[in-house]
């Protein structure tokens, strides 16, 4: 259950962040693309959370500390480069993870088998944009490099153990690093050589410890639901 909750929260929170782009995307075609990804993730979140309990109770009535998502996915959208860097790091991880889960025979196998196709598309979308921003103009290169650097310290958390998640974490990490490195190099970007985790022994998202902006995100997400206790929508 911890595993379904962790992965469900990842999808829920990232979907929410991508939903914030609606009406703000750099080009109309990208409105459609970002919404597609957000909808895929929301679908995954609903399936995963339903394995644990009532999807709405879990999404709307838990306190911040009870969320088990990675800190990476809760990071604010920033500029389009930050959103793409977050997508690249996360979708690469998610595709490799779901690929492993789909090959197994646990309770997440069915979901992973369906989701891995969606996620492969998310990864492709992120890679295409990483190439264009990294190897586009001087400005886009600089922005993309800055985004990759800024989010790097949230990537180590993806390879921490999660209770009930039966995956080969070392294989996951090396495959992730290889995939991301290849894309960044093709995009003429430098792979960050800084630490991939924050220096805080209290832990991170998987332990329920989040970053400052997450509280505000939840306040916005939950306020209407919580203002009408027991109501149905």
């Amino acid at each position: 259950m911890t595993a379904a909750l962790a992965l469900g929260d990842d999808a829920l929170v990232l979907s929410h962040r991508l939903g914030e782009w609606a009406g703000h995307a750099p080009v109309l075609e990208e409105e459609v693309a970002l919404a597609n990804i957000a909808l895929d993730l929301l679908g995954q979140a609903r399936t995963l959370l339903s394995l644990v309990g009532d999807e709405d109770e879990l999404a709307y009535l838990r306190e911040e500390r009870a969320f088990r998502n990675l800190q990476l996915v809760e990071q604010p959208n920033g500029d389009f480069a930050h959103t793409i860097a977050r997508q690249l790091y996360f979708s690469t991880y998610q595709r490799l993870l779901y690929g492993q889960l789909a090959a197994g025979d646990g309770e997440l196998t069915g979901l992973a088998a369906k989701a891995v196709k969606e996620v492969a598309y998310h990864q492709d979308h992120a890679e295409q944009w990483t190439l264009r921003l990294g190897d586009g103009t001087a400005e886009s290169h600089e922005r993309m490099q800055r985004a990759c650097d800024a989010l790097w310290r949230f990537t180590g958390e993806m390879f921490q153990p999660v209770e009930g998640l039966d995956v080969d974490r070392e294989a996951l990490r090396s495959a992730w690093l290889e995939s991301v490195t290849t894309v960044l190099k093709r995009a003429t970007l430098t792979v960050p050589d800084t630490a991939d985790t924050g220096a805080w022994s209290a832990g991170a998202g998987r332990q329920g410890l989040h970053t400052e902006s997450f509280g505000r995100m939840l306040a916005e997400m939950q306020h209407l639901h919580r203002s009408h206790p027991g109501a149905s929508w």
């Binding site: 080009v27 075609e29 459609v32 693309a33 597609n36 492709d124 979308h125 295409q128 264009r132």
Partner: peptide, 20 residues
């Protein structure tokens, strides 16, 4: 029709727009 910087992106945009 749609706008895209190149063929690869055109294909992806078309997938998102016309086969939702």
């Amino acid at each position: 029709s749609l706008h895209a910087p190149d063929a690869e992106m055109a294909l992806r945009n078309a997938r998102d727009l016309y086969t939702r």
